[in-house]
Design a protein around this nucleic acid. Structure first.
Lengths: 219, 219
DNA sequence: GCTATAATAAAACGAACGTTCAATTAATTC
DNA sequence: GAATTAATTGAACGTTCGTTTTATTATAGC
């Protein structure tokens, strides 16, 4: 009726986070009750409040750490090269890999923004904007260097991000296509979309990007 | 304390629908209470049950009619022509126009699927799949005719739909870009994405699609 | 082995939820 | 103008919600 044998704060908190991501992704933040979450962890609802002061704080923590993870992943994957094509390839590969790997967390971060208080919403949106700004910079550099052919940098960045993030809606591991194949196809589509390779070999550019993606994924 | 002067069932039901779409889009289905909805309409909560037997039935009705509207819009916009480029252009123009015009309803239909019962979810998803199938058919025809260069028809269709639907996330009427300009840019991106116009004038294809979109929007 | 503390259970809080029901009044029909 | 129907109110139902409080037990340090 109180502390249970083998109970461990760190393990419980980790279990709460994981269960929360899964439940919120499946049922939504509002639909998930603290009692339901506690039951999934194998604990009473009151125990959750040892780790997270409120339900919203729990949601915010999940979102903030997801965004930090995305930013960190890009910082380590970001190539030193100044070649816009290589940078764009790295961005696409990192984005798709990260979002497929963390499908549930991405779902939460994208769908539950309206459940945050205004200040917390602003904080998450700032992180997201910073991440998207990286893509816009790549597109702008490529357009200025003449290797991309882009009508509107902002619009193209939004279109690309929504296209890539959309992968988590339909992608299921172990089905028709592997992550490698999906990434390769999306890289090919991305390069065509930004008009990369207008130097006469447009038709073969998709194949080149595809080969590059396969190389990268094989590492 | 009972029927109010000037009360009219049809008007009240229409007001309920409109208020529900706006509230669900803003706060989410679970977060919107029937009392909140009633207050927005200027009525007591019990009055809502004259028009919708349950909260979920209300959500389902909104979603079903939205999907029917989308299908109907495409049926009237669908050109008789067999030219894949023209058909794809029409699809993109219709999709973007419809989704911008009904931003809130689209938001509801995309975000609140998990709040439907299994049978109703299946019903909505069937309508959605049928609509997406139209795009896949266009892409397949274009690929077979050699006017499109596509790696994977299914993947490309999903990428395009997510790219286009994403417009409602950031588009706000009266800001930097008009609907016409946005549509033109998306048409251009779409055509490049599917590899339309590989006959040596790739670079100018975007401009052609853009002109076509401006013509269409000017009607 | 005692003490301090970390981790949890159990019960309860008031508030809000979706929904129902009976009563009441406006509009319509004859 | 009486009877009928349409539209709505106000109060209440039982349930569930997020959260708090208090008590209880396991673990760790000395």
């Amino acid at each position: 009726m109180a502390r249970t044998t083998g109970s461990d704060g760190e393990k419980t908190e980790a279990a709460v986070r994981e269960a929360a991501v899964n439940l919120i992704a499946r049922f939504g933040y509002e639909a998930m009750s603290m009692r339901q979450l506690a039951a999934e962890v194998g604990v009473q609802a009151a125990a959750l409040y040892r780790y997270f002061p409120t339900k919203e704080e729990l949601l915010f923590t999940l979102m903030r750490e997801h965004m930090e993870g995305l930013t960190d992943a890009w910082e380590t994957a970001c190539p030193i090269s100044a070649d816009p094509v290589q940078r764009l390839s790295a961005y696409v590969e990192n984005h798709i890999a990260f979002h497929i790997e963390r499908r549930h967390a991405t779902h939460v971060s994208n769908m539950e923004l309206r459940s945050l208080s205004p200040e917390r919403l602003t904080q998450i949106l700032r992180m997201r904007t910073a991440y998207e700004k990286e893509l816009r910079a790549i597109l702008r550099d490529g357009a200025e260097a003449g290797v991309f052919s882009i009508d509107d940098t902002g619009l193209t960045a939004m279109a690309l991000i929504q296209m890539m993030t959309g992968v988590i809606v339909w992608f299921r591991p172990g089905e028709r296509l592997s992550i490698t194949e999906v990434t390769a196809t999306y890289l090919s589509m991305t390069m065509r979309l930004v008009g990369a390779g207008t130097d006469g070999e447009t038709t073969h550019d998709g194949a080149r990007a595809l080969g590059r993606a396969r190389d990268a994924a094989a590492l």
